[in-house]
Nucleic acid binder design. Structure first.
Lengths: 237, 237
DNA sequence: TTAATAGTGTCTATAAGACATTATATG
DNA sequence: CATATAATGTCTTATAGACACTATTAA
């Protein structure tokens, strides 16, 4: 086969960012990284989404970059991960024309998620308030985070995404509560249980969650490889 | 302000592709371009999606690239356009690590869409059959087209997207027929009319479409800037 | 008049909303 | 026993599915 010509024109910077959500203390949180102090870097000391440049030597594809970035900051290796979209323009990064491929991840609220110690960057779970966080984010990350929240809240209406924010075993009430945290409104218990159980989303597991009340049956996600899509949203209009 | 450092590592190729759909002769079609004969270019004489490199001098952002590419091949300037996703890997392009930002456009089936004459590339509407076309597409464009079809068919179940495939004025039956073409199944006339009219998707306009039968009221999209999302899909399960 | 498609009406099926009732653990 | 939350049941509401029926044009 004849060798192909190599294009010689200037190329944009290529990045991948990951909007990582979890639920902590009954509230949605997003994982942010504090950029370093170096004044020759853009947005020194600003909080930013987890992400970085595509490394053409190290990375095979875009998904690998997202998983690498996730792994650098957390102990999570198999999160729920989907593409959110792309943001690219001449002005979004002072270093020049840049485009970022953004993913969106949901990880379980179990402990031991974050890497600690060493010379690690400062990484923190920041609470989501309304459509964003109480921080001035670097680059266009405020806009990207807002898009991620819109996508999340829309899909929560008709998918099983919140199940990925829970530990492996959970009760129906805990799942409903996770929906309510993200949507910011209460759902009907009866309708929620019917939908959850009849959809095949969950599967019973051994045991109950005990407390000073009637014990609650424990369930797990039946097929974590794909979320369930429901035929209706919860609240028409 | 202190000048920021310029990264010096190698960058992937950055492209934008647009999957452009329309309906011709009662069938869904996608716009494809025939690549030239030059054997030093990848995939000579293969059909490919409309697209090309980001031009950091000419283009302000990714959306501009998509609109520029659309304009180079068609006379359409304000289509329905949404991001589909990104495809990026070391191997998808023989010229090296490349990433494409893919958009998905729906344009009206009116005439005069395609640019003609001059030294234009060969551009053609190719009929969609099942999950793709009867052509060996360049790069990973078969996979991208398949994703676009999945996205389109999913969203047609619960959005007003097919309205963007029709001329400005259309009848409810024509709209229903467009849904049926994309979904590949028939819908109930009564339920379709109720949903369409009660959702505020359309607005009556002057006049009727005549024929050798009862004339049909003409409608237009009330607010073309956003599609309508319905609270239910047509066919649960 | 007939043919053809537009448009409406009626009844059923499904799943969500509202809310009451029963079940079962701890203390 | 009281209390708390789990789980179920009943009735209503909204909208899709099936399908019959009526409306209005051209030829």
């Amino acid at each position: 086969m004849t060798k192909t010509k190599q294009p010689t024109f200037p190329r944009p910077l290529s990045l991948v960012d990951v909007v990582i959500f979890t639920v902590i203390n009954q509230a949605l949180h997003v994982l942010l990284v504090k950029r370093n102090k170096d004044e020759h870097e853009p947005f020194p000391e600003h909080w930013a989404l987890v992400g970085g440049f595509v490394d053409v030597d190290q990375d095979d594809d875009l998904l690998s970059v997202a998983l690498r970035k996730l792994k650098e900051k957390t102990n999570v290796s198999s999160p729920y991960l989907e593409q959110l979209g792309s943001w690219g323009s001449r002005t979004r990064d002072p270093r020049g024309w840049s485009a970022t491929h953004v993913y969106f991840a949901l990880i379980s609220s179990e402990t031991e998620q974050l890497k600690t110690g060493g010379n690690a960057d400062e990484v923190k779970w920041i609470k989501v308030i309304d459509n964003g966080v109480n921080e001035n984010l670097a680059f266009d990350h405020t806009e990207i985070l807002e898009s991620a929240l819109i996508r999340l809240r829309n899909k929560v209406e008709y998918t099983s995404l919140p199940a990925y924010l829970l530990p492996k075993k959970f009760t129906i009430s805990e799942l409903q509560h996770t929906y309510e945290i993200i949507l910011g409104r209460n759902l009907e218990k009866s309708a929620f249980r019917t939908r959850t159980l009849s959809s095949g989303l969950v599967q019973e597991v051994e045991g109950y969650k005990l407390g000073s009340n009637r014990p609650a049956k424990l369930y797990k996600i039946k097929d974590p490889s794909h979320p369930v899509y429901f035929a209706r949203t919860f609240k028409p209009k």
